[in-house]
Nucleic acid binder design. Structure first.
Lengths: 154, 154
DNA sequence: ATTAAATTCCCCACTATTCCCCACTTTCCC
DNA sequence: GGGAAAGTGGGGAATAGTGGGGAATTTAAT
């Protein structure tokens, strides 16, 4: 199971296109067919899921009961800011303008491999996010998440 | 299993026609034959089901017991304001005037892909609906559905 | 029954956006 | 150093979105 890792900075041209980092592309499963779903993150960034991983997300969504108001709300809010896209012949992705605006991306985008998905940040927003997390706080978080419970799967 | 996603705003002309978003059209199953059923939503919006998905809804309706007063009431109210429609040669749908009125749609319509169904909103009504859901509440919903086992706490 | 009015639908036309392809520069690797 | 791959930019074709005219069908009225 290949997973995405590393940080890559690329320029966004005036058509909203960014080169998809070669190292991340090589980590793509053939099942993904170089197709993705991109959506708003909880943080001020974008989540980029390769097709095969997105299917797992959709499976979770499909379990939601659409005949309840709460269920509809979750689906609506989740899917609302999501779009499909795929690589062009130059291995770039077009970032939908409304998503670029949400994430404050303009001119430069930073890809962060994050396991089963990829995060796309604007340099400024990423810096701000970093500023909120001191080294000590990170260590605490790390222990919190990795330490106590069974963080191993499969 | 492709599902509808994304938000698209289009203008409604004075004949009640709206362009059906191209990205949603590409997500249509060939079984749907570019035919739909449109009806009043529970929320102040319209539900748009492609033909193939509508059949599943009808199956569910057929399970309702028509020999109970409640059953009859549900069926009646559900089907009462439903209509069939299909795309014209320019890939537009005509919104029946009584449904447009119900949803407050006039001049502009917003399509929201929501899995197996598409919702059609007026900008105003959608804004009102959004106001009911704070960012925090959404984050809770999000974690709920996407269900990490993280011991998150920041 | 015939005409008038209204609605539907089909077609055409214009504009904006997206997508596809080509070209150039830089970096990486042998 | 040379070749291949990666990253960047732009021009042109195709598609999407929008609006409107007019024929055909339906509804209503005389």
């Amino acid at each position: 199971m290949p997973s995405f890792k590393g940080e890559y900075e690329h320029s966004v041209d005036n058509k909203g296109r960014v080169a998809f980092p070669a190292k991340l592309r090589k980590a793509l499963s053939p099942d993904a067919q170089e197709r993705f779903t991109i959506l708003r993150g909880i943080e001020p960034c974008l989540y980029l899921y390769p097709n095969d991983e997105w299917e797992l997300v959709e499976n979770k969504l499909s379990e939601i009961n659409s005949f309840s108001r709460q269920g509809r709300k979750v689906k609506r809010q989740f899917l609302r800011y999501a779009e499909d896209l795929s690589l062009d012949k130059q291995n770039r992705i077009p970032i939908p303008s409304h998503l670029a605006e949400y994430a404050g991306i303009d001119g430069t985008a930073i890809f962060i491999g994050s396991g089963e998905r990829i995060e796309v940040w604007s340099p400024q927003k990423l810096e701000e996010e970093d500023a909120l997390l001191s080294a000590d706080a990170y260590e605490d978080l790390f222990e919190n998440v990795m330490g106590g419970s069974d963080a191993e799967g499969d």
